[in-house]
Simulated scan of single mutants.
Amino acid sequence: MTVDRSNREIRTAWDDLPDAVRTYLVAHRSRDVTAALTRFTDDAAVTDEGRTHRGRDEIAAWLGAAGGEYTYTTEFIETTTIGASSVDVLQHLAGNFPGGEADLHFRFTLDGALISRLVIEP
């Protein structure tokens, strides 16, 4: 009997994250829109604060504006991978936004070496 373990959750260290995810997170933290955008497929979608941004133009606009009115730091907490295409990164944010602190999941779906979907939520 063969057991399919491809959807099993596996804890992953920062250094073991897929390159697209690591590059995006570093670029997003430093607000490097150009570097972050290169990690997305042409038809990618990003959902943040309940709003979905589709395609590179909308994602670029979102990246340029996201959190721009606030100063904050991010701290990597943990990550879980599910199969070859799903990565859930938990980060702690602290800053001058309403509430001052938040733990957010960055849920990535990969298409090959690029991000095809990102959902940011508590």
Rank of each mutant, 00 (worst) to 15 (best):
I115H: 12
G64C: 06
E101S: 04
A27M: 10
S30Q: 04
A61N: 03
T74N: 08
F76A: 02
F106H: 10
D4A: 06
L114E: 09
Q91M: 09
D42T: 15
G68I: 02
T2Y: 12
R107K: 15
W14I: 07
P122V: 03
A102K: 13
R54W: 12
Y24W: 10
R22F: 01
A102M: 13
G95T: 14
D42S: 15
G83V: 03
T2R: 12
V89A: 07
L37K: 02
H92R: 12
R107P: 03
T81W: 06
P122Y: 01
D48H: 00
E78C: 08
F76H: 02
F108W: 11
F108K: 06
A27V: 03
T74M: 13
L17D: 01
M1K: 12
V3R: 10
R29Q: 05
V21W: 00
V89S: 03
S6I: 10
F40M: 07
T12D: 10
E121A: 12
R56A: 06
A20V: 15
T12E: 14
R31G: 03
G112K: 07
L25T: 08
R5P: 06
A65E: 15
R51F: 08
V119G: 04
A13N: 07
G68M: 10
R56Q: 05
L25V: 11
L37Y: 10
V89Q: 02
D88W: 02
A20H: 06
D48P: 01
S116H: 03
V33S: 13
V3S: 08
S30E: 15
E78N: 07
I59H: 08
A94C: 08
T81D: 13
S85V: 08
D103V: 11
D15T: 14
N96M: 04
L93A: 14
L37M: 09
T23D: 02
